[in-house]
Amino acid sequence: MSQIWKYVRVTPSGGRVRGVPARSSTTSISLPGTPDHLSSQSTLILRFVMSIMEHNGGSVVAMAGKNCVAIACDLRLGAGAQTIATNFEKIFPVTDRMYLGLAGLASDVVTLREKFRYLTNMFLIKESRPLEPSTFAHLVSSTLYERRFGPYFCEPVLAGLERTPSGSYKPYIVGTDLIGCLNFAKDFIVTGTASDKLFGVAEGLWEPDLEPEDLFETISQTLMNAVDRDAYSGWGAVVHVITPDKVITRTLKGRMD
């Protein structure tokens, strides 16, 4: 079972008030010190708490290039440390020029995929006009915020090409947290259990105005090297590079350990 250390506040009445994440969840030798802000009325104790966001594993990354965007995910589905499947894609097409990546709890990945498919179809029927990424981003945001106090345990990443008034397309990537806070980035968006590793590699490899083939190489190297250092992601990857006239989809073989 995927578990991490957390501080849990215990009050004399026995109620669990709230969990304060430990500063370092992976340090095996640090003693259970407690933050300063606790009062004598309750005690913080350190204990294993299952983390829903890490339970199934998986990571997604999106990058912007010159007139193109790319989005990639790993293929692992796990239950804690145990690998259940190695063909679990986390990226789904929304329109011809827009893909949505969902990393987090697998059941919520599936639920949200279906929910957004429904919402996209309803939009197209009602509005009879193309769904642009900037519109869909806010649909994602408000859909997640509807469940503000009982969220879907998913952090979506959206990559697409936005049609400009002049008729050309410009790259559009956006990520949100699990309650729908939008994060617009000019460079790249990462999410999932390997997000910190993805940040490090992407920050080192990404550069502005990459052509589709260079963007493919950059996002592939970023994802592969990041998930190879993450126990909860990996087992191959799928990469989509979206250009104005086509989408290039490639499946990558990865380490299987």
Binding site: D196, K197, F199, G200, V201, E203, G204, L205, S220, Q221, M224, N225, A226, D228, R229
Partner: peptide, 14 residues
């Protein structure tokens, strides 16, 4: 953040 970048750039992983 740094170790996977070094894997790629020093060890030429992937």
């Amino acid at each position: 953040l740094v170790q996977p970048f070094l894997d790629n750039q020093i060890y030429f992983k992937n």
